[in-house]
């Protein structure tokens, strides 16, 4: 049984009816099959309509959908011969950040991503995808390793943000994030980043200052969560929907602002409805983004990335 979001209720009702009829159809006539077909068409049309015009707040819900494919799913689907690597060599291993070497469409790559976890046990182990300084320091170590062997770097971003905790602060959360960004910007290998779910602030940009930044159609990417923004600017968390509108955190808005390079379309009804297809589509988009970069030398890659971020001072006029 699917996990339905609030705004999907009409779709859920239709699909529930279809299920019921299917059970009936075992012991009754042909008209039911016809009815099922009719209802399925209606359900699909409704899904199409709903997902074509999701509000920013609805996208926030979709981006956080518990059944949405996570970083480890993309790695399992796209990377062969994956060898996970662990630890920052200074303090600890942080399971909120996954990293390792593997093969993407035949060539060796380094992969780094934030992982939220799919069930309670995994979520606890991964700290809900909120990394501590050792996580960003591990990421940095792996970036340098990739550079040493000329491996392109692919990153998958899905995090509410860096972990806000006493231990994280004591070990220099700010410094760890700042250095991860600095290292992204310095690399002499291609860096293609994909925002696959939630791109939460500093914890996201730490892995996403890339030559190309892709974003799934219903992913979000923001300087602060809509809830956090609402509680500060509206002094009331209940205004999260207004904040989601104001922040322009959707892939479509970010493409217009020139912050990301490409929106990768999701299967009908969102990545969680057809994870396999979503993973394959992102795979194709990553390949498209990576291919032209492979022809450049290290210095050009570094320069292109730096120039791209330096040029972000002049966003297009508001619409």
């Amino acid at each position: 049984m699917h996990h339905f979001l609030d705004f999907e209720r009409p779709i859920a009702e239709l699909e529930g009816k279809i299920e019921e009829l299917r059970h009936l159809s075992a012991d009754s006539g042909l008209n039911i099959a016809e009815e099922v077909g009719r209802l399925e068409l209606r359900a699909n049309a409704l899904l199409l309509r709903t997902y074509a015009r999701l509000t920013p707040w609805q996208k926030v819900m979709v981006a956080r959908h518990p059944e949405r494919p996570h970083c480890v799913d993309y790695i399992a689907g796209l990377i062969t011969d994956f060898v996970p690597l662990a630890g920052d060599r200074a303090f600890a291993e942080d399971a909120a950040i996954v990293g390792g070497i593997g093969r993407f469409r035949g060539r060796s790559v380094m992969v780094i991503g934030t992982e939220k976890g799919a069930d309670t046990e995994a979520r606890l182990k991964r700290n809900f995808g909120m990394a501590r300084p050792e996580g960003y320091r591990k990421a940095r170590r792996l970036m340098r390793l990739a550079e040493r062997f000329g491996l392109p770097l692919l990153t998958f971003v899905d995090t509410a943000g860096a972990y806000p905790g006493i231990d994280a602060e004591a070990r220099g959360q700010s410094e760890a994030i700042a250095r991860a960004i600095e290292t992204c910007l310095d690399l002499r290998v291609p860096l293609v980043a994909a925002i696959i779910g939630e791109g939460g602030s500093g914890g996201a940009i730490a892995l996403a200052a890339g030559n190309a930044v892709l974003m799934l159609e219903h992913a979000i990417y923001s300087v602060i969560s809509p809830e956090g923004c609402a509680s500060i600017l509206w002094r009331d968390g209940a205004h999260a929907q207004d904040a989601a509108e104001a922040l322009r955190l959707t892939a479509q808005e970010l493409l217009r602002l020139g912050v990301i390079d490409r929106v990768v379309s999701e299967p009908l009804g969102g990545a969680h409805r057809a994870p396999g297809e979503a993973i394959a589509r992102l795979g194709d988009a990553l390949d498209d983004a990576l291919r032209p970069l492979l022809a450049s030398d290290g210095d050009s890659l570094r320069r292109q990335r730096r120039d791209k971020f330096l040029a972000m001072g002049t966003p297009p006029p508001p619409q």
């Binding site: 994030i177 700042a178 960004i181 992204c184 910007l185 602030s201 500093g202 996201a204 940009i205 200052a209 990417y221 923001s222 300087v223 602060i224 923004c229 500060i232 600017l233 104001a246 922040l247 322009r248 955190l249 970010l254 602002l257 912050v259 971020f309 972000m312 966003p315």
Partner: peptide, 12 residues
């Protein structure tokens, strides 16, 4: 916050 993602881009 009033500059949304563009303020995050000021980190890099």
């Amino acid at each position: 916050m009033q500059e949304g993602i563009l303020s995050l881009m000021q980190l890099p």
